[in-house]
Amino acid sequence: MKGLPMREDDLQAYVDDRLDPVRRAEVDDWLVAHPLEAARLRSYRKQNKALQALFAPVLDEPLPEALKVARPQAKPKGMGLLRMAAMLAAVGLGSVLGWTLRGEVQLVQARNEAVAPAQLPALQMATVATADTGLARRAAVAHAVYSPDVRRPVEIGADQEDQLVAWLSKRLGSNLKPPKLGRLGYELIGGRLLPGDKGPVAQFMYHDASGKRLTLYVSRETGDDKETAFQFSEIGPIGVFFWVDRGVGYAISAGADKAELAQVAVTVHEQLRLP
């Protein structure tokens, strides 16, 4: 036999057309005398072709919204805190980011936007971790599951608000009252308890005069004492405004735009701070 003895690696590389022409010719010769091996390699080549045929259509699919993210801007390193605060205050429009306490700009999720309502100076410097986007997703899912429910959107209705407050407060281990959003045209329907990642989660549901529903998701699952800026994310048709304050995650979900949800977020933030 010519050349080196045949090794399995050569045969695999033959399947993938990664041999130099000399070696490839040697394998070709060798296969003539080894029909079973030839059949095996033909089958592997078929696997490659079949894999490509099977998954090629994915390449042509339009990108889902969540992946059509804005690219992060150039990294403004060493930016002064004052300037950052000024920029942050001017955001809302910004296509970007969360700010770390170290003063570095960090990408969170490009479609999340850090928003700094002028009324909330305490939240202007905040740590944002990617885990927070999990909060938004879970809140959006809970919203999507329960808000269309006509007959039983909540477990305890607003007509039994005392009972609702007592029950959710007990289960969450802290005093939790549904915020009043009447000023913004939203009336409380009631609430329910949901399983979260690390414990129970409360969901309050509201509706406006047109019947549009809005949910507030309150979760202790973030654990530590961290805080984040207000962030906005769109998950499918649902807009989610969310933040973490003293280790408690809040997320407001509705089929509403950012401006409207921001108003609700500010109101909720004013009224609802778990001790």
């Binding site: 894999l51 099977l54 998954f55 090629a56 994915v58 390449l59 699919e61 990108l63 992946l67 690219r71 992060p72």
Partner: peptide
Amino acid sequence: PNEDIGACIPRLRRYARA
């Protein structure tokens, strides 16, 4: 690199789907 990453998205999706 930003544009290059963008150009890789369809293939990353294909691989992840598979």
